[in-house]
Every structure is written in structure tokens, then in C-alpha cells.
Design a protein around this nucleic acid. Structure first.
Length: 725
DNA sequence: AGCACGCCGACT
DNA sequence: GTCGGCGTGCTC
């Protein structure tokens, strides 16, 4: 009883291919099929099979994967709709989106069985203390891995071998380990403040409604957002549904996992790039089978094939790490909203500094606005002041103004931790030749090369190009003539060490080698109090709590405010709020100092006064004044290609064919995300349009009429997708 | 001749 | 996205 079915394959194709199946297969069934010279894993799809081809000419499906309930399709109708939706929204081929779902090849192989041992016969004639300990552990009739048993009993593996040959133990096959233990929603009910309880009630009510909704959980740093959304997770789990919590850069958020464990007596399943393949496979299968109830993951977790998803929490919803720029370009926060709509469940967006677009959505009533206005007891907001650099100037050749130096000295004197924050890696952002004025710039993208003294190299922060720091100027040949212009964290650390030689200091930035693991270790050392003075980039602004940190000094609060980027003010506000919020997080009494040339700038004023609303009001009004609605319906379409002139021509052609209001911004390398610069694409354009809904249709028509000659066009639509759902 | 590289088209 | 085919151009 063969049948012909449509299969979507995980390649850059939008169309399905027809295959002969051994029997009728429901859409969503995962299959392996021959495809050109190789085999790929795809999914039976809802498209009608190609009737124009005779079945005799079709290839046959080589394998049908059985899903956990035998015979049921693995990707349910909601999941398939989600794949379709993301493909349409991102203008990516459907196959590429499916690829994100099926990216775990190991998940479909049968789980390798693990050898273990279990009690099988009478106790051995000769008992020894080691054997007694082993036997005690086997009392309950449980099976163990050989290594696990030996380690727990505190004996060498040869003791186990001896018991096997004596016939007391026998080799058995162990069942595959589960990806995560069952969480208990009632394990530990936290004491919530009145504010928190009210917010938790709103979230629980949304879970109970069993309908699509979006809630913006908006609370200052230290207001206890995590405890609140954990209650929504508990309600979801209690209702028999699965919950997904997304976090940016999850590899660094150790402490949140620990909080889940305290709340639910079980570790949640983790999903991010650092999880080893075998464990990833278990989580994927567990999510599909319904064994895994809570997943904490990075943006890609959004594409796990959950069986009965009932809640998504997007923590730090404003964070840029939710954007994927290569392959299928999407914003996981927005796609989470879409998945919630399709699956008819609530999505919680949490942040102390919500993005402008989420605030606008909340203001306009499309998202429920859940506000936590107070810090939890014992964590008062830091007292932040501006240091006007026009009046308090640093000494010549220095970067720290006297009030900041004094504040750091006092904090160190009290045995407290102080942080000097500067969002610029390396020693100096620009190097010139003192003899001839030659500026060192990147041969590939013309950005200035950043001096990295600790590494002894000049590096381009846009494309990753590095070269050794030369002894002589390549332009005029002068020796030892290189002059560093401006500060980076390395230079600030040098200055701070000269001022406070007795302080134990550390530089925290992403270019300390050793990867995520080393960064995590060093953050932990800082939290444990192993350092007094920290000089850091935005790495220190995110996630981690430093209990002993009382003073945050921002070396250049204006950095980032001055460039022409659409989101410059918003991003600077978010960063400054996050980093000053680190001070006095535990026990209160924190303070912050912002070195600035523009103390009257709305962003600086909002941070100093603590009046977040003032910032949102002015920023939203300012975007209104540009003539473009503030992001609720603003589309940013980014077109990038390998060649600047050609890319520009394409963008202009697009703008001509679109009806009204589209403006084009040419963005240089500074704005282009690294992902594109590292590839072949060097230039990109941002087209802003107030006509979000129309954009896809125009873009589609335009791409069909004028396909780019080479290199392709990459399109990212960067907008609130709710109006499409 | 042999090989590296880049471009193009097919993939049921 | 990935592969094979095929052209170009270079080779101690």
C-alpha cells in the first residue's frame, strides 16, 4: 500500500519534493530521503504532492522515524504553521526554517544503550569492607553504571569486576538517562512582596486563560522579576503544560538555573550551543515526547518541537542577542510572540529596560503592562550622579576625573568593590604615528584598528582582522612613534592600577582568552570578592550579581550616544541602567557616577534621576517626530550584498518600486553586524518604511522582477510582528 | 597533465 | 545548503 507524499527538505528551498512512501504518512512525520547525491532528514508536509510526475519516476523514502507515541506525527500542526510563518516573515525558504527545527541529527538516532550492572545472585563467599559498601548501594535492586557505582561506593572499579565474575552482579542494559527530572511546582513557594504577588497573579491568570496574550513584565533591576515569572512557570507546569524560558547568552547565566532548582527541586533542561550533542539530543527528544517540562535556552530553543507548550518567557527582552543575522534572520523575541499566538498561550517579555517597541505595544494596549516599581526589601536603587567633564577634568593624559578617583578611593577604603565601566575593548581605539600622522586602519573594512597591548596586536573590531603591533610606522618608517588615542579598558586599568596599586584589580572583557568557561569563572571570582577593583566592558552589565559591589563609575557615559544609529539613545539608556543597577544589588547602599560631557542629555538625566518614564516619553516622542511611527509598525529592511554600488542600486530600485515613505540609510561597517562583515557581504542598507504590512508583498515582487546578480540579498525585517498574526 | 578555485545549476 | 560538473588559470 504505497503512497506519494510531499516532503520539505532542510535546504535552501521553498518547495516540497514528492516521494514514494511505504504507506500513507501524516504531515509532520520525520523521514529520511535521498536528495541528490546524499540523504537528508526532512518532514512530510501539508503541500499536495506533485501530480505531474509519475510515481515510477519518484524516489522512495528511505526511513520513517517513529515519534514517541508510535505513528503520531512529530511536528504538530501548530509547529508546521510556525515554520511557515517564520519563513514568510523572514523571506527565507521554508526548508531553511525547517532546518532550524531538525538541526539535531543525533536526536533521531536510537539512543545508545548504556552498559550497567545490577544484583543478580547470592552475595560472594568472601565479604570485604569494599564489597559491603557496594552491596549496600545495590540493596534497592537499582541498576548502576559501573563507574558510577564504584565512585559512589568509594571503591575501585576492579571491586565491581570482581563481584561480576563472582556471579553476584551481572551486566545489564540501562535505560537511557532522562534529559531532566520532573519539576515540582509546589516544591518551594517563595515569599513575594505585595508588588510581586500582584504581578504573579496577573501572569497566572494569563496562563489559566489558555489563550494567546503578551505581557510585558517591566521592573527595575532588583525588583524580583525572576521570582515573578517563575510563578507563571509553576502555574504552567501545574496545568500539565511545558514552559520555555529564553535568555540571551545563557552560557553565562548559571545563577538563574540554580533559582529554578530551588523553586522546582529539579534542574530545567538547558539548550544552548555549549550543551554537548548527546545531551542536546535528549532535550530535543524530551521536548517532543513531553518528558521535559521546562527548558531554559538561547534563541534557538524557540524551534524545539514541544509537544504541549503552554508558556514562553523572554527574559531581558530588549537584548540584541535575540537577533539572528545570518541564514534565516529573525528576532527570537518577536517569533516567540508569534509562536504564542499560533499555540494560543501567553508570552511574557521581561526586562528592566524594555525596548521602545515593546513599550509602545504596552502603551497602545496590545501587550499587558505588568509593572514592578519597587526593589525587593534591602535593595534600594543606587544613588547616581553625573560628573560634568567640562568642569571636572581628568589630569592630562588621564581619563578618570577627580570626583570619580575620590569615590573609588573611598569605596576601596571601606573594603567595598568598585567597578569602572567602559564599553570599549583593548587599550586605545585609535593609533596614529606621532611623526607623520598616519592612522592605522583595517585593510578589509577601513575601520580604525584598536590597540590591544595585552595581546601585542592591532585588531579590527568589525571584521576580526588582526596584525602585530609594528615597531616602525609603515608610512614614514619612524621608530617608536606610535601614539595611542583615547581609552579602552586596558588603558583605564593601567591608570587605575597606578592610582590604587594595593587594590586587587581585574579586567573583564570578551577578549580575555579561554572562552565562556573562563569568563564564567572570573565573574564568579568577582562575585566571591576575590577582586576589589573591576574594569570592564558590557560583559559586566549583564546577568551576574556582584554582592559586594557598591560603586559603579562609568568612564564615558556619552559613548554610543553620538553615532547616528536609530537606536543609539535606547541602547545607551539600557546599558547605563543595567550597569549602574549592578551597584548595591545586595544590601543596598550602592552609588554610581557617570562621566559625561552632556549632563543635560535626556538619557543621562533619566539615569541620574532614576526617572525611566521620562526617557521613554522623550524617546517615543522623538521617534514620532521623525514622521515614522515608533516601531509599532516600523519595518527596517536590511539589504546587503557583496558589492557596495550594486547593493545600493538594488536598494534604490526597491525604494522606487515601493509606494510611499520609504527612506534609505546607507550604513557603514560600524553598524553592520559582525556576521555579515565576516562573510562576503561588506555593505548593507537599512530601508525604513512606515508601511510594514505592505513591505513583504513589494519586496517579493521586487525580488522576482530584479533578482540580484550575485551574492544574494539578505533581508531582515525588524519589527513587531504582532500585526501580522 | 594535474590540481585548486570559483561559478552555476540541480536537487522529487 | 550542498554537491558535482566544468571552466580558468597556474604550476618548485
Amino acid at each position: 500500500m504505497t503512497a506519494v507524499v510531499s516532503v520539505l527538505v532542510p535546504v535552501a528551498l521553498g518547495d516540497c519534493y514528492s516521494y514514494v512512501a511505504p504507506r500513507e504518512l501524516a504531515p509532520g512525520t520525520i523521514v529520511r530521503v535521498p536528495f541528490g547525491p546524499r540523504e537528508v532528514v526532512g518532514a512530510v508536509w501539508d503541500d499536495a504532492p506533485d501530480t505531474g510526475r509519475s510515481p515510477a519516476k519518484l524516489k522512495a523514502i528511505s526511513h520513517v522515524f517513529d515519534a514517541p507515541p508510535p505513528g503520531a506525527p512529530l511536528l504538530d500542526a501548530d509547529m508546521r504553521r510556525f515554520v511557515e510563518w517564520v519563513a514568510r516573515w523572514t523571506l527565507a525558504p521554508r526548508g531553511m526554517v525547517l532546518r532550524m527545527v531538525l538541526r539535531v541529527p543525533e536526536a533521531l538516532d536510537p539512543e545508545p544503550t548504556r552498559p550497567g550492572v545490577a544484583l543478580a545472585g547470592a552475595p560472594p563467599e568472601r565479604m570485604t569492607p569494599a564489597r559491603t559498601r557496594v552491596m549496600a548501594l545495590l540493596e534497592g535492586g537499582l541498576s548502576w553504571t559501573k563507574a558510577g557505582l564504584a565512585e559512589t561506593a568509594g571503591v575501585s572499579p576492579s571491586v565491581i569486576d570482581g563481584l561480576v565474575s563472582a556471579g553476584t552482579l551481572a551486566a545489564v542494559e540501562l535505560p537511557p538517562p532522562t534529559a531532566a527530572a520532573r519539576p515540582d511546582p509546589d516544591f518551594h513557594h517563595p515569599d513575594l512582596t505585595g508588588d510581586q504577588s500582584a504581578a504573579a497573579d496577573q501572569l497566572r491568570a494569563a496562563v489559566a486563560r489558555d489563550a494567546a496574550s503578551v505581557l510585558l513584565l517591566d521592573g527595575v533591576t532588583g525588583s524580583g522579576k525572576t521570582e515573578v515569572f517563575l510563578e507563571a512557570v509553576a502555574a504552567t507546569v501545574a496545568a500539565g503544560k511545558q514552559a520555555l524560558i529564553m535568555m540571551p547568552e545563557i552560557a553565562l547565566t548559571h545563577s538563574v538555573i540554580a533559582r529554578f532548582e530551588r523553586r522546582f527541586a529539579a534542574r530545567p533542561a538547558e539548550w544552548h550551543s555549549a550543551v554537548p550533542p548527546a545531551q542536546r539530543a535528549r532535550v530535543w527528544r524530551g521536548a517532543a515526547a513531553g518528558d521535559v517540562r521546562i527548558v531554559v535556552g538561547a534563541r534557538s530553543a524557540l524551534f524545539l518541537p514541544f509537544r504541549e507548550l503552554g508558556l514562553i518567557v523572554v527574559d531581558e527582552e530588549h537584548d540584541n542577542a535575540y537577533k539572528q543575522d545570518d541564514r534565516v534572520p529573525y528576532n527570537a523575541r518577536d517569533m516567540a510572540v508569534v509562536r504564542g499566538h499560533i499555540g494560543r498561550f501567553p508570552v511574557v517579555l521581561a526586562s528592566a529596560t524594555p525596548s521602545i517597541e515593546s513599550r509602545v505595544n504596552a502603551d497602545q494596549g496590545r501587550y499587558a503592562h505588568v509593572i514592578l516599581s519597587d526593589r525587593v526589601p534591602g535593595a534600594s536603587l543606587p544613588d547616581v550622579r553625573a560628573v560634568d567633564l567640562r568642569q571636572s577634568r581628568p589630569e592630562k593624559g588621564r581619563w578618570l576625573a577627580p570626583p570619580l578617583v575620590a569615590a573609588v578611593g573611598e569605596a576601596l577604603g571601606r573594603g567595598e568593590q568598585a567597578l569602572l565601566f567602559l564599553n570599549r575593548r583593548g587599550y586605545a581605539p585609535l593609533t596614529v604615528c606621532g611623526a607623520c600622522g598616519h592612522r592605522f586602519s583595517c585593510p578589509d573594512c577601513s575601520a580604525w584598528l584598536v590597540d590591544h597591548r595585552l595581546r601585542g596586536r592591532l585588531a579590527c573590531h568589525h571584521c576580526g582582522h588582526t596584525e602585530p603591533r609594528p615597531e616602525a610606522c609603515p608610512a614614514c618608517g619612524a621608530l617608536d612613534s606610535l601614539v595611542a588615542c583615547g581609552p579602552g579598558v586596558e588603558r583605564i586599568a593601567e591608570e587605575a592600577q597606578a592610582l590604587f596599586p594595593e587594590a586587587r584589580s581585574i579586567i573583564l572583557s570578551s577578549d580575555i582568552g579561554g572562552g565562556t568557561e573562563r569568563i564564567r569563572r572570573e565573574l564568579q571570582l568577582v562575585a566571591d570578592g576575590a577582586f576589589d577593583l573591576i574594569v570592564g566592558t558590557q560583559l559586566v552589565a549583564k546577568g551576574h550579581t556582584f554582592p559586594r559591589l557598591k560603586l559603579v563609575g562609568v568612564v564615558d557615559a556619552d559613548l554610543g550616544l553620538m553615532n547616528g544609529d536609530l537606536r543609539a539613545a535606547e541602547r545607551t539608556f539600557q546599558l547605563l541602567a543595567q550597569v549602574t543597577g549592578r551597584a548595591g544589588r545586595m544590601g543596598g547602599g550602592g552609588s554610581g557616577l557617570l562621566q559625561t560631557h552632556a549632563p543635560d542629555h535626556p538619557v543621562i538625566r533619566a539615569i541620574v534621576s532614576g526617572d525611566r518614564e521620562a526617557f521613554y516619553r522623550t524617546e517615543i516622542a522623538e521617534r514620532m517626530a521623525t514622521g515614522l511611527p515608533p516601531f509599532g509598525r516600523l519595518a527596517a529592511i536590511i539589504i546587503s550584498g557583496p558589492d557596495r554600488a550594486e547593493t545600493e542600486a538594488h536598494a534604490r530600485a526597491f525604494a522606487r518600486s515601493a509606494p510611499s515613505g520609504e527612506g534609505i540609510d546607507m550604513l557603514g561597517p560600524a553598524e553592520a553586524p559582525l556576521a555579515i562583515l565576516r562573510g562576503r557581504h561588506r555593505f548593507r542598507l537599512l530601508i525604513r518604511s512606515p508601511r510594514t504590512v505592505d513591505i513583504q508583498a513589494y519586496l517579493r515582487a521586487w525580488l522576482a522582477a530584479a533578482p540580484p546578480a550575485r551574492g544574494g540579498v539578505r533581508v531582515m525585517i525588524d519589527v513587531d510582528p504582532q500585526s501580522f498574526v
